[in-house]
Design a protein around this nucleic acid. Sequence first.
RNA 1: GGCGGUAUCGUCUAGGGGACUAGGACACGGCCCUCUCAAGGCUGGAACACGGGUUCGAAUCCCGUUACCGCUACCA
Length: 487
Amino acid sequence: MSSPAVTPRLRFAPSPTGYLHVGGARTALFNWLYARKYGGQFLLRVEDTDKARSTDDSTRAIFEGLAWLGLGWDETVVYQGAKLERHRADAQRLLANGTAYRCFCSQEELAQRRADAEANGESFKYDRRCDRLDPAEIDRRVAAAMPFTVRFRVPEGTTSWEDLVHETIAFPNKDIEDFIVLRTDGTPIYNMAVVSDDIAMGITLVMRGDDHISNTPKQIQLYRALGAELPQFAHLPMIHGLDGKKLSKRHGATAVGDYRHLGILPGAMLNFLALLGWSPGNDIEVMTLEQMIALFDTAGLQKKAAIFDTKKLEWMNGQHLNLVSDEALISLVSPALVAAGLATDAELTDRRAWYLSLLAQLKVRARTVDDIVRQAATYFRDAVAYDADAVAKQWKDRTATATILRGVHDALAALPVWEPAAMEEALRMRAGQLGFAEKAGKIFQPLRVALTGVSASPGIFEVLELLGRDRSLARIEAALALLDEKI
RNA sequence: GGCGGUAUCGUCUAGGGGACUAGGACACGGCCCUCUCAAGGCUGGAACACGGGUUCGAAUCCCGUUACCGCUACCA
């Protein structure tokens, strides 16, 4: 493991042009993990310089997403748009120290030359013509208020760096064109703004998506021209959809908020995301946040893009569902139950012990909070919603079913105490009397449908206990009435 | 097109020259448990992209090919 030499400062720098994407969330997580692990700072910078696409709603959604995941940031949020003066000043420094020059070529001219080059099958690269302008001519144009951009003069040689995930990456400088750092309107181009901000924020490790690899040599040149110390770089692989293409809306849910509403736990989301592009080794998979911090190591970072597999996310969620404390589970499930109109907070508080045992039964059988709510419904409502398939299968012979249920009802009704052991004894005895000695399931299944309306549920005695004596007997009676009228 | 990146089961991955008849997990099949469904346990099928090197020996190192991805804007 390579411990950082200095206190690390990292940042997550999303542009507020949509919701917090799972890819962004994972980038944030790795930055956060690294900062936490080494006692550094994790900063948040909102890259809102694209006024046309940035919205306050998006900014809010990013905050909410990070908050839900529990990825808090240190220091105050930096809004890139507010740092325009510094960006401009840094670009002016480049002009002053001779590492950049004014370019008077218009956007139209450039587009034309680019089109011409492409028409000839050549790749276009700015030919530096404005860098060859006579100083007097430049002065004349500036005096005449001719619009210009500021272009960085890429030097000869090679630009390379030791990437924390890719080892060394090198770009021949001849392949990098003299890129613009300041537009004619004086606003900075992305790479200028990023470098200016990262220097100002004291970032020591830039960890971001590998779609930024080709920006990196430009940024390194900017650091050098500005006389700033270089940070380390780590380029994380992308996350793709099932079809191997970059994750997008076509693939379904891609915003972390979508998963929140699907009943995914933040801890499970984080755990799943962490495993997309990172492995702690030793076949470890299910981890708490604390364990992830302890285990995190850039050496375990993957170079290859990962495919987002919802199935495994759901499995992971099931694992976490069984990992969280009762308190945490309640705070996750209660709002959903209330929202579904099944209970009120007051009822849940009043019947806490009962509620807890219900959750204990359901969480094993659920993969998401939504699953729990769906399964819980029948324990909160008076009426039973009968599943047609379950009825068709388990109540196939209505006369026989009625006989069984009547017998079960009487056995249960005669019980002095409403307690599992007593129920089991009575029911198994009754099964024997009904001719199902070693096949108690023959009476349990019809009973399960009478009690819950479906053929899959917690153990039958747990169901009886959860439902309580009155409701259980009432449901059996209702089932009998239903069977009678159908005969 | 140019430049850059990547390549182990369908998917996430372990692996960093001999421990590999390639391990784990998800998904899928079977068995066990069992009142159903889960959970759990056991188990089956399933991969080193291809071609050259280097080496006594390569999934591991090098080169090439192929495929895929990214960048190639006065977007971020």
